[in-house]
Measured scan of single mutants.
Amino acid sequence: MDVFMKGLSKAKEGVVAAAEKTKQGVAEAAGKTKEGVLYVGSKTKEGVVHGVATVAEKTKEQVTNVGGAVVTGVTAVAQKTVEGAGSIAAATGFVKKDQLGKNEEGAPQEGILEDMPVDPDNEAYEMPSEEGYQDYEPEA
C-alpha cells in the first residue's frame, strides 16, 4: 500500500510541476504579447503594419512553449490582441483601416495563427491545408 501511495504522490508532483510550467509559459506569452502591443503603439504610420505582424510573430513563438489545451486559448487571445492593436492603430490615425491585415508588401496577414497546427491532446499534428499553395516548377 505504501508503494501505491508513494507512486500516487510522485504522479501528483509531476502534474503540479507540469501545471506550473504551463502557467509560466502562458505568463511569458502574455508578456511578449504586451511587449508587441507597446511596440505597435510606438510606431509611426509606416511601421504600424509591420508592428502588428511582430506582435503576432512574438506571440506565436511563445505559444510553442505552452502545451496542451492552453495553446488553443493563448492563440485565440493573441489573435484578438493583434486585431485590437490594429483597431487602436486605425482609431489613433497611425494607419488607414484599409491597410490593416496586410503586410508591407500588401499581402493579407489573416491566418497567421489560424494555420498553425495545434492539437490540445498532444496526440497528432496535421499540416495546414494546401489550398493556398501553388506547385513550383523550376525553369529549365
Results as ranks from 00 to 15, higher is better:
Met1Thr: 00
Asp2Asn: 13
Asp2Pro: 01
Asp2Lys: 03
Val3Thr: 00
Val3Asn: 04
Val3Asp: 02
Met5Ile: 00
Met5Ser: 04
Lys6Asp: 07
Lys6Thr: 05
Gly7Thr: 08
Gly7Met: 13
Gly7Val: 10
Leu8Gly: 00
Ser9Pro: 00
Ser9Glu: 09
Ser9Ala: 04
Ala11Tyr: 08
Lys12Pro: 00
Glu13His: 03
Glu13Val: 01
Glu13Gln: 07
Glu13Leu: 01
Glu13Arg: 02
Gly14Ala: 08
Gly14Gln: 07
Val15Met: 04
Val15Phe: 03
Val16Pro: 00
Val16Gly: 08
Val16Arg: 02
Ala17His: 04
Ala18Glu: 00
Glu20Lys: 02
Lys21Phe: 12
Lys23Cys: 05
Lys23Tyr: 09
Gln24Met: 06
Gln24Tyr: 15
Gln24Cys: 09
Gln24Arg: 10
Gln24Trp: 04
Gly25Val: 09
Gly25Thr: 14
Gly25Ala: 06
Gly25Ile: 12
Val26Met: 05
Val26Arg: 00
Ala27Cys: 12
Ala27Val: 04
Ala27Gly: 03
Ala27Ser: 14
Glu28Leu: 10
Glu28Gln: 01
Ala29Trp: 13
Ala29Arg: 01
Ala29Asn: 00
Ala30Glu: 00
Ala30Pro: 00
Gly31Lys: 06
Lys32Ala: 15
Lys32Val: 05
Lys32Gly: 02
Lys32Trp: 07
Thr33His: 03
Thr33Pro: 01
Thr33Trp: 13
Glu35His: 04
Gly36Gln: 10
Gly36His: 10
Gly36Ile: 11
Gly36Cys: 09
Val37Met: 07
Val37Cys: 04
Val37Ser: 01
Val37Ile: 12
Val37Leu: 04
Val37Ala: 04
Tyr39Asp: 01
Tyr39Met: 09
Tyr39Glu: 02
Val40His: 09
Val40Pro: 00
Gly41Met: 08
Gly41Tyr: 12
Gly41Trp: 06
Gly41Pro: 00
Ser42Trp: 12
Lys43Cys: 08
Lys43Gly: 01
Thr44Asp: 00
Lys45Thr: 14
Lys45Pro: 06
Lys45Glu: 01
Glu46Asp: 06
Glu46His: 15
Glu46Leu: 03
Gly47Glu: 03
Gly47Val: 12
Gly47Ile: 05
Val48Glu: 00
Val48Thr: 05
Val48Cys: 07
Val49Tyr: 04
Val49Asn: 05
Val49Phe: 13
Val49Ala: 14
Val49Gln: 11
His50Asn: 06
His50Met: 13
His50Thr: 15
Gly51Trp: 14
Gly51Tyr: 10
Gly51Thr: 05
Val52Cys: 09
Ala53Pro: 02
Ala53His: 05
Ala53Thr: 08
Thr54Asp: 01
Thr54Met: 05
Thr54Pro: 14
Val55His: 01
Val55Lys: 01
Ala56Lys: 02
Ala56Trp: 12
Glu57Gln: 07
Lys58Cys: 08
Thr59Cys: 05
Thr59Asp: 01
Thr59Lys: 01
Lys60Glu: 04
Gln62Arg: 13
Val63Leu: 15
Thr64Ala: 13
Thr64Gln: 08
Thr64Arg: 10
Asn65Leu: 05
Asn65Arg: 08
Val66Thr: 05
Gly67Lys: 13
Gly68Val: 07
Gly68Pro: 10
Gly68Asp: 03
Ala69Val: 08
Ala69Arg: 15
Thr72Lys: 10
Thr72Gln: 14
Gly73Ala: 10
Thr75Asn: 05
Thr75Ala: 13
Thr75Trp: 14
Ala76Lys: 12
Ala76Ile: 09
Ala76Leu: 11
Ala78Phe: 12
Ala78His: 15
Ala78Met: 07
Gln79Cys: 12
Lys80Ser: 03
Lys80Ile: 11
Lys80Thr: 11
Thr81Ser: 07
Thr81Cys: 08
Thr81Arg: 08
Thr81Asn: 05
Thr81Tyr: 07
Val82Phe: 06
Val82Cys: 12
Glu83Ser: 05
Gly84Pro: 02
Gly84Met: 13
Gly84Ile: 08
Ala85Leu: 13
Ala85Glu: 02
Gly86Arg: 07
Gly86Pro: 11
Gly86Leu: 14
Ser87Glu: 13
Ser87Leu: 02
Ile88Gly: 05
Ala89Tyr: 06
Ala89Ser: 11
Ala90Gly: 10
Ala90Asp: 01
Ala91Gly: 11
Ala91Phe: 07
Thr92Val: 14
Thr92Cys: 03
Thr92Lys: 04
Gly93Thr: 09
Phe94Leu: 14
Phe94Ile: 08
Phe94Tyr: 11
Phe94Asp: 06
Phe94Pro: 06
Phe94Gly: 13
Val95Ser: 15
Lys96Ser: 09
Lys96Phe: 13
Lys96Ala: 10
Lys96Arg: 14
Lys96Tyr: 14
Lys97Asp: 15
Lys97Ser: 03
Lys97Pro: 02
Asp98Gly: 12
Asp98Thr: 14
Leu100Lys: 03
Leu100Gly: 15
Leu100Pro: 03
Gly101Asp: 12
Lys102His: 15
Asn103Cys: 10
Glu104Ala: 06
Glu105Thr: 07
Glu105Gly: 08
Glu105Leu: 04
Gly106Asp: 01
Ala107Ser: 07
Ala107Asn: 05
Ala107Asp: 11
Pro108Ala: 13
Pro108Cys: 08
Pro108Glu: 05
Pro108Val: 10
Gln109Pro: 07
Glu110Phe: 14
Ile112Ala: 06
Ile112His: 04
Leu113Glu: 09
Leu113Gly: 05
Asp115His: 06
Met116Glu: 01
Met116Asp: 01
Pro117Ala: 10
Pro117Ile: 05
Val118Asn: 13
Asp119Arg: 01
Asp119Asn: 08
Asp119Thr: 04
Pro120Ile: 08
Pro120Tyr: 10
Pro120Leu: 04
Pro120Lys: 04
Asp121Phe: 05
Asp121Thr: 09
Asp121Ile: 10
Asn122Phe: 07
Asn122Lys: 13
Asn122Cys: 12
Glu123Trp: 11
Glu123Cys: 06
Glu123Arg: 08
Ala124Val: 09
Tyr125Leu: 14
Tyr125Lys: 09
Tyr125Ile: 15
Tyr125Asn: 10
Glu126His: 14
Glu126Lys: 13
Pro128Ser: 09
Pro128Asp: 15
Pro128Lys: 03
Ser129His: 07
Ser129Asn: 03
Ser129Arg: 03
Glu130His: 06
Gly132Asp: 07
Gly132Val: 10
Gly132Ile: 13
Gly132Tyr: 09
Tyr133Met: 06
Tyr133Thr: 13
Tyr133His: 07
Tyr133Ser: 04
Tyr133Leu: 10
Gln134Ser: 10
Gln134Pro: 02
Asp135Ala: 11
Asp135Pro: 06
Asp135Ser: 07
Tyr136His: 09
Glu137His: 11
Pro138Trp: 09
Glu139Trp: 05
Glu139Ile: 08
Ala140Asp: 11
Ala140Gly: 06
